[in-house]
């Protein structure tokens, strides 16, 4: 799995925690040309979501201006122990996902 996720292992209830997620992806814009001027087709991740205990807590639409290997950081309030699920959706519909646990006391 080509993702790097940073979620604190533990947090206090009500604490604001920072979550960082990066995925390996070329984010090909569709505006470049390759050998002999042949256009390189667009291939980007256009949607990222993060869910906690089955409920979506963060989502982002991504566009061609995003760099390769997109890195997203956001915060959430630690409400209880559980699993964050991260999903990246490609233009062609394929998805990659990753998960990370948090223990809230």
């Amino acid at each position: 799995m080509r993702t790097l996720i940073n979620v604190p292992k533990t947090a206090k209830k009500g604490e604001i925690v920072e979550i960082r997620a990066m995925v390996a992806h070329p984010m090909e814009t569709g505006y470049r040309t390759g050998e002999n001027g042949v256009p390189i087709p667009r291939q980007i991740i256009h949607r990222f979501t993060c869910s906690f205990a089955g409920r979506e807590i963060f989502a982002a639409d991504l566009f061609p201006a995003m760099s390769a290997n997109p890195f997203l950081a956001f915060t959430t309030v630690a409400t209880g122990s559980g699993t964050f699920t991260f999903t990246w959706t490609d233009d062609d519909g394929t998805t990659q996902s990753a998960a990370a646990e948090i223990t809230v006391t």
């Binding site: 080509r2 790097l4 996720i5 940073n6 960082r20 990066m22 390996a24 390769a68 290997n69 890195f71």
Partner: peptide, 14 residues
Amino acid sequence: DDDLSNPGMFWVLD
């Protein structure tokens, strides 16, 4: 400095 924000780590892991 942060291995979780350094995209070079994707290649190291590969």
